[in-house]
């Protein structure tokens, strides 16, 4: 077994037609810190006529342990997700890094294990949130279902996480979604492709370096003069907005799902 290099650039994955039912893999960060984003994602998917299944048995994809080199621990947690998402329906993942974990890393994590085939199958039916919206549902269809297209002007800074950009290759999907929102102006921070310094346990184990990276990213976001910061990765959001807020620069931060839902549908009073 040898670590795989990235696939040839041209090898885009094939997408199914819009399914009747999908799993939502909420991710542990959304679960505890951005649950509203999860609810917004569910409503957004339901508005497309898709039934959302949220297994209560889901916990964490196992990425923190895997990235730290604790393979056994990662595998034992990932095994739980194989059980939780066992049925053969697409899995939509709220965060790009967790999507990358399941889609790209599970086959490696389970190589030579009894669950290898199951892991590969899960990987193949796993989609990152924006990828599912753009490549399975389609932007026009999505925008066509909007009920509240006349919102006030909003300037949005998009932070595309490194896993979205490089592991899942969905940076373009993120841009497309934000760009197509009515009355929204998309701005990108300087050095847009650079890591914000989160990196999971990296932020803790190399706190000084992580903080330096976060400070630069926060400054770049602030310099855009945006009204709102959005991303499909809550680790990055927590990192950047936490840094901004420590510096006394309060810029609202939202998961992409919440931004989409709130800009496309009336949200007043709904919980």
């Amino acid at each position: 077994m040898t670590a795989q290099s990235e696939p040839p650039h041209a090898a885009r994955r094939a997408y199914p037609s819009v399914p009747r039912q999908v799993y939502l893999l909420g991710t542990c960060l959304v679960d505890s810190f951005y649950p509203q984003a999860g609810m917004d994602a569910i409503r957004l998917l339901e508005a497309q006529g898709i039934e959302v299944v949220f297994p209560q048995a889901q916990t964490c994809c196992g990425q923190p342990a895997w990235n730290s080199g604790y393979d056994e621990e990662a595998r034992s947690v990932a095994r739980q997700q194989l059980h939780a998402f066992a049925a053969d329906i697409p899995v939509v993942v709220m965060m790009s890094s967790c999507a990358g974990m399941v889609h790209k890393e599970y086959p490696l994590l389970f190589r030579g294990q009894p669950e290898e085939a199951q892991a590969i199958a899960l990987a193949q039916r796993t989609y990152e949130f924006s990828e599912f919206l753009v490549d399975v549902i389609g932007v026009e269809t999505l925008m066509g279902t909007a009920t509240d297209a006349g919102s006030a002007a909003l300037t949005v800074a998009l932070h595309t996480s490194c896993s979205a950009r490089r592991s899942m290759g969905v940076a373009e999907q993120h841009r497309t979604l934000v760009e197509n929102l009515p009355a929204v102006t998309l701005v990108e921070p300087e050095r847009v492709t650079e890591c914000c310094g989160f990196g999971g346990t990296f932020a803790v184990k190399q706190a000084d370096i992580s903080a330096a990276m976060a400070a630069d990213k926060a400054a770049a976001v602030a310099a855009t003069g945006c009204d709102l910061l959005t991303s499909a990765d809550c680790g990055c959001l927590m990192n950047i907005s936490g840094t901004l807020s420590k510096q006394g620069k309060e810029i609202p931060a939202q998961h992409l799902a919440s931004l989409l839902y709130q800009r496309l549908y009336a949200t007043e009073g709904e919980s």
Binding site: E6, R166, S167, E194, C195, F202
Partner: peptide, 12 residues
């Protein structure tokens, strides 16, 4: 080894 956020820019 811990001085890496696994952001992937190097591999790219």
């Amino acid at each position: 080894l811990s001085a890496c956020s696994l952001n992937g820019a190097c591999g790219e």
